[in-house]
Nucleic acid binder design. Structure first.
Lengths: 238, 238
DNA sequence: GCACGCATGATTGTATACGAAATTGAGTTC
DNA sequence: GAACTCAATTTCGTATACAATCATGCGTGC
């Protein structure tokens, strides 16, 4: 069940665990993915080092890793910030997903085992739970996991890495450009995909994934009107 | 014309330039891409630090960046080594390229400007030059640049990043699994692509890219017989 | 009163020192 | 002579110290 937050110390995970740059990066990515660390948040090295009970060396390595995944932006002599994808970034991310995910879903459908199906099913169930409990961040994270899991089932490690990165970035994009109306169609699409997987129907899964991604983009407000702050230093830096 | 090598000191670039982790990483990637640093080569931190005239801090950041691109493998307490993609890795890399590059070539054909065409043309010319001069590594690098350039022209930064990584990894794969026969069909395919681009024929470019990639895979020896060394510590470690 | 410049403080960039892990080789034992 | 043990050495992992850079606020001059 393990839940926690970076700011509130409802658990002493920071002292107990033995952190490495990888685990710290994963922890931060998780927090970013769940919108506990919104876009633009400053990630001070000293602050993080103290929070995790480690030195800045590890923190820097973790931030470097996240910057390579374009989840944080490193500004020289200024610090690390949770990335703020532009409208253009958003379009590119979903273009890339459209190239990778439908065909990957096709492969996954053909390789799907019963264990895989059960795992996907429980994922959707958890997503529902989270939604019912009002834990939107957690639901969003699980929703992303669903997509990554498909790539894993397709047995394409390399593509899985790309998709994982794209989905984490999608979470940032959703944080910035999500328009409220038409909310929970998410789990519906996942349910439909699950059915296609259960029938090992690759063509259908591919088609469903394609339209699912189109729906996602359609649910965003990517008019350039809402341009991200550029000139006056991140528009008050939040 | 600036050419140089890591081992031989035919130029004193190491003292003059002001290196950062990014430039060091790019320099190493270039060397790997050109097969001056073959798969399995040990990249000792102290060695590199001394070579570039910087401290291990920068070297570590560069190696970390390259490990995220799967060009070097970091083994805990043992050091960094130029990656040795397995047969499975090779298949995955070319599967991913097959997903990304044909459609990207399609987009590129539609957005192609005359300047872009000239750039691609000069790239091919340089590739020919290198081949004639027997500089196979340089030719291979330029051949890769051709593909990355197409992604840039398609105006897809994110996909370009993925393709760039995949192409660098492809260079390692070629170093390990290239079978000699049927050598220079490379530039032919690029010429054909260039023609399609010149005619702004997206469908043709997409098709040509697809078969180009198939040809590439076909030119590799990916039978599992030639398994990469695993058990006896990198098979004499080079 | 406004703007510019300089000093101060905070934060990151880099180097180095120390500790930990693993490899290596010699020495010993069976 | 073969195999094992253990110390010595090398190399990486982490922390910390110092330098450089940027942001901030006060003071001065126009």
């Amino acid at each position: 069940m393990q839940r926690w937050s970076l700011a509130q110390s409802d658990m002493n995970k920071f002292e107990t665990k033995h952190w490495t740059s990888d685990t710290v990066a994963a922890d931060l990515e998780h927090a970013i993915h769940e919108h506990r660390l919104p876009p633009g948040t400053k990630l001070g090295e000293d602050e993080l080092a103290e929070a995790y009970g480690i030195s800045r060396t590890i923190v820097r390595a973790a931030l470097l890793a996240l910057s390579h995944r374009r989840l944080v932006e490193l500004k020289r002599n200024r610090g690390a910030f949770v990335a703020q994808p532009t409208v253009r970034d958003a379009r590119e991310v979903f273009e890339a997903r459209a190239l990778l995910e439908p065909r990957t879903a096709h492969s996954a459908a053909e390789r799907m085992t019963d264990e895989d199906l059960a795992l996907l099913r429980s994922n959707i169930a958890s997503e529902h739970e989270a939604l019912d409990a009002g834990e939107n961040g957690r639901a969003l994270f699980l929703s992303g996991q669903f997509h990554v899991e498909i790539a894993r089932i397709a047995d394409q490690t390399t593509v899985q890495g790309f998709i994982s990165e794209l989905i984490s970035r999608s979470s940032l994009i959703i944080a910035l450009y999500w328009r409220r109306r038409a909310a929970l169609c998410e789990t519906q699409a996942h349910h439909a995909l699950l059915d296609a997987f259960a029938n090992r129907d690759g063509d259908l899964a591919e088609q469903l994934m394609k339209s699912h991604l189109l729906d996602l983009v359609a649910s965003l407000d990517l008019r350039n009107v809402t341009q991200p702050p550029t000139s006056l230093r991140e528009a008050l830096k939040r």
